[in-house]
Design a protein around this nucleic acid. Structure first.
Lengths: 120, 120
DNA sequence: CCGTATCCGCTTCGATACTG
DNA sequence: CAGTATCGAAGCGGATACGG
């Protein structure tokens, strides 16, 4: 394999990785996405249920964040009856597997606290 | 173990985890922290070197983000000579181990793209 | 070389009130 | 019930210029 194609390989790899990380960051972005995902991890929820379970969130924010998450393929939105309307939100498979990311974040955070013991 | 202490256990656990996740999020926050960490992963760097390697970053932002990272115990800052002043930034042990988090983020992002194939 | 200071636009988010 | 509309405060981040 020549030098140029090695470089091309590296470049391709880098941009792919950057894109992948960005996808992950998009799921994390904003104040409320993690709480929402956490809440949905216990099963599908209605709009109002989420609003009740997540302290201090306003309908405006809940609506916006749910739209983002849906656009990012992390939750699905299904409309049910008509009187009155009920809507259910549920994690996709990707959404469910997101706890793997969270686990590692928790793990790093805990280890980091140990490392920083007594240093500040 | 009674019900109340179980609840207390869960609560304690939750808040600890939330704190740990927040620590991790603080390392990710802002436009430039990940690029900086990525750059420092190849070894210690001077201020100007970082500025050169990270496209489009301004001194203001580089300075601010480095301060944040230092305050969070992810990088160390050491001042050297005097004529002219040189400053070196280096990852702490926590900073080095942060690639474990990044790896999982890449992994989830890639898997997520596979899952979303043809669905949008 | 290594930053800091100032100004300023843009986005984010909360509060509140309102619609289908 | 499930959202939307509007307003305003706060803060992030860019551009530029200057200080130790």
């Amino acid at each position: 394999m020549g030098r140029i194609s090695e470089l091309e390989q590296v470049k391709k790899c880098s941009t792919t990785f950057v894109l992948a990380v960005n996808d992950t960051l998009n799921v994390i972005n904003g104040k409320w996405k993690l709480p929402i995902i956490g809440s949905l991890h216990f099963g599908k929820k209605r709009f109002k249920e989420l609003a009740r379970e997540i302290p201090k969130i306003t309908p405006r924010m809940l609506s916006k964040e749910l739209k983002d998450l849906e656009a990012n393929g992390v939750v699905t939105r299904t409309v049910h009856g008509t009187i009155p309307v009920t809507v259910e939100y549920e994690l996709t498979r990707s959404g469910e597997s997101f706890n793997e990311v969270l686990d590692v974040m928790v793990k790093w955070g805990l280890q980091h606290r140990k490392n920083s013991m007594g240093k500040r």
